[in-house]
Design a protein around this nucleic acid. Structure first.
Length: 664
DNA sequence: TTTTACTCGTTAATTGGCAAAGCCG
DNA sequence: AATTAACGAGTAAAA
């Protein structure tokens, strides 16, 4: 099947031909056969990099009206926006929390790219363009199994489809265990495929020996390379002979990376934590990878760029690594640093990125070889195996179409774990996607939204709204009845929703003014409640300052918490005591004292930030990553604006809130 | 004999990432 | 639960 036989305009066909796209990949052909170009609903469960974006473009280009492309990450939204904007004759708009490309009304665009939360928010705020859509494409739809964000995705999609029954729905998923359930939910045709444009072999490494799933094997030299020559024996025995006993996972990883780079291929190495990503990068910097790849100059240029971002310790470490042809990548990095790393890797100026799982789900950075050093991670209830789905996404980054003969994914294990790792990740299937809508917190949020937008005025009508969700299709909406009743009660006692007598049944549910503002500002009900209480308390304080404002917004579930080390606890405690007159919480009062102290720490950081402290100072005074500071500042802006709106709603003015906001 | 360097064992600290407002005619 | 950083004791080598 050829591109020029599809119902696309000539300029579009030429556009694809310019990029070497003339023939369809098998999964794309299957999607066309399923009717993506004729308005059919389709679910495509295919590996990453097997041409999902093209399927999305087909659906959006052939739909008889405006289209919406929903994806989970802002960085991905940007990437797709650029891809779509390159299509001839297509007006594209983008709408994410941090970025509105046009500023002009999104109604005029042929295609809008947005995150799911942004779409949800647009619906709550009554944006008109969502009702005029002819087609919606949901990328990474398996995310509806995610704890917090999954419910948003399924409720949003259900609402869109309910308000617009003719809407064509195309959902793109990673390979999961139950794509048929997702297809069933959407009454869509299922396209399932394991096909990839580049072969992928997956193997398990023990010591320097790798056994791949296709029967081939690979052997690399593991051992400390700083030993000048071997065989001097005698007293130096501890120094250089430890390659005889179990080499540790880091050394095996280093050897695997060095081996691939010697062969001209780039690598990604995944580890468990941020610190270990940095440590591994520094270890690999000793390997002379920049020289092996012949990119010393370009690597030095990238290091210069990284140095230019800021003067933090992290920045210096990154620059040092980049000079050696290595990089690390995790959420503690500022976006400027991340961008340098990503583009340097794509330009082939960097041999290896040592990363936490950020990179697995993020922007496109394919490599010849992927090494997954750690397969377990600390979570609730101790150390646990990383989900198979996630490891598969890491492995899926191996193999650059047209550049590598095949991709290789290597899981590092030891003799004891070899079989467990093989069974779980090489032979094992990814997990099934399960709805998280029954989670009480998620339900409260979406019940409030349904009431505040006038979609529902009774519990029965709320259940109708949820009728179209994945949860309802899997379990039956009736299963939600009790949970919805509890959520309504919670919202009533929180003052977000009121019961009014009259109407068809004996009472109607209406959102209170506070409930409505909370929903429109897109904060959780618990956050709205906390802010309202905090504003009232602040108004009574004799000396409410910006610190007061920060304390209120940091003590909400919408602000991420900041790690409070043992060494700092006493210090933060003294700080809280000193500033008791400016805090809305009585120190003897909070049930969750630890959590509150963390909030105070965050508030303190933000207050020093608006007081003129530099990133460098805050980063080493409070031991947080530079990127963490940025993201907290961003959230604070949002939450302070929500606080202002709520203050106006309840008629309480706290000047400190506006002052804090304007100084951020 | 004193000082420094290094090894080894014990204990304490630390452990992913992600999104969210406004609509102004 | 597991890994690593931090610390301190003990020992060998150097001054």
């Amino acid at each position: 099947m050829r591109v020029r036989d599809l119902p696309l305009s000539q300029p579009v066909v030429d556009h694809f031909a310019d990029r070497g796209v003339r023939e369809l990949y098998p999964p794309q052909r299957a999607a066309v056969d399923a009717g993506v170009c004729e308005g059919a609903d389709v679910v495509a469960a295919v590996p990453t990099a097997s041409g999902k974006t093209f399927v999305a473009q087909l659906a959006l280009l052939t739909a008889g009206g405006p289209g919406l492309y929903v994806c989970p990450l802002r960085a991905l939204a940007r990437e797709k926006y650029e891809t779509f904007a390159a299509l001839p004759g297509v007006d594209v708009g983008i709408s994410t929390g941090d970025f509105d490309a046009t500023g002009e009304a999104l109604a005029g665009n042929d295609v809008v790219v947005a995150t799911s939360e942004k779409v949800d928010s647009a619906i709550r705020n009554g944006a008109s363009w969502v009702d005029e859509l002819a087609c919606v494409v949901v990328d990474e739809v398996h995310l509806l199994g995610a704890k917090r964000r999954g419910p948003t995705l399924e409720v949003t999609l259900a609402t869109l489809r309910r308000r617009n029954p003719d809407l064509q729905t195309v959902a793109l998923s990673a390979t999961v265990d139950n794509p048929d359930a997702i297809a069933d939910w959407l009454d869509a045709a299922l396209v399932e495929s394991e096909w990839r444009p580049v072969d992928l072999r997956t193997g398990v490494a023990v010591g320097g020996e790798v056994g791949f799933d296709d029967g081939t094997s690979l052997s690399v030299d593991v051992g400390p390379d700083e030993t000048a020559g071997d065989g001097d024996g005698g007293e130096a025995r501890d120094g250089d002979a430890d390659d005889t006993d179990d080499p540790d996972a880091t050394e095996v990883t280093a050897a695997l990376v060095a081996d691939a780079v010697a062969d001209g291929g780039q690598c990604l190495a995944f580890v468990r934590s941020r610190r270990e990503a940095v440590d591994l990068a520094e270890r690999l910097a000793e390997e002379g990878l920049a020289a092996a790849l012949g990119v010393e100059d370009a690597a030095a240029a990238a290091a210069e760029e990284a140095t230019g971002v800021d003067g933090t310790m992290t920045g210096r470490q990154l620059a040092d690594c980049l000079r050696a042809g290595v990089a690390f990548h995790h959420a503690g990095l500022r976006s400027g640093h991340r961008a340098v790393v990503e583009s340097a890797f794509r330009e082939r100026d960097v041999a290896c990125i040592c990363a936490t799982p950020t990179l697995a789900a993020g922007v496109n950075v394919p490599a010849r070889r992927v090494v997954v050093r750690d397969q377990r991670r600390y979570g609730e209830g101790g150390m646990s195996w990383i989900p198979t789905l996630e490891v598969h996404q890491m492995c899926g980054r191996a193999g650059r179409p047209g550049l590598d003969p095949h991709g290789e994914a290597v899981l590092v294990a030891d003799a004891d774990t070899r079989e467990a790792v093989r069974e779980r990740y090489v032979e094992g299937d990814p997990e099934a996607v399960e709805s998280q809508l029954a989670d009480p917190g998620a339900l409260r949020t979406h019940v409030l939204a349904a009431v505040a937008t006038d979609f529902a005025a009774t519990e029965t009508e709320i259940l109708d709204v949820f009728e179209g969700t994945f949860y309802a299709r899997e379990t039956g909406a009736g299963g939600l009845a009790d949970a919805v009743a509890v959520a309504v009660d919670d919202l009533v006692s929180a003052g977000m929703v009121a019961r009014e007598t009259g109407g068809v049944e004996d009472y109607r549910l209406v959102a209170t003014a506070v409930g409505e503002t909370t929903s429109k500002q897109y904060v959780r009900p618990e956050t709205g409640e906390r802010i309202v209480a905090g504003l009232r308390a602040a108004a009574d304080l004799p000396e409410a300052t910006t610190l007061t404002a920060f304390e209120v917004i940091c003590d909400t579930p919408d602000m991420q918490d900041t790690y409070l080390g043992n060494a700092e606890r006493a210090d933060v405690y003294r700080f809280a005591r000193r500033n008791a007159a400016r805090l809305t919480t009585d120190m003897t009062d909070p049930d969750d004292f630890e959590g509150w102290l963390e909030s105070v720490k965050t508030a303190r950081i933000l207050d020093e930030w608006i007081g003129g402290a530099t990133v460098e100072e805050l980063v080493d005074r409070y031991r947080i990553g530079p990127g963490d500071l940025d993201s907290r500042v961003e959230r604070a802006e949002w939450l302070l604006s929500a606080a202002e709106a709520l203050g106006e709603t309840i008629g309480v003015r706290v000047p400190a809130v506006s002052r804090a906001r304007s100084r951020l």
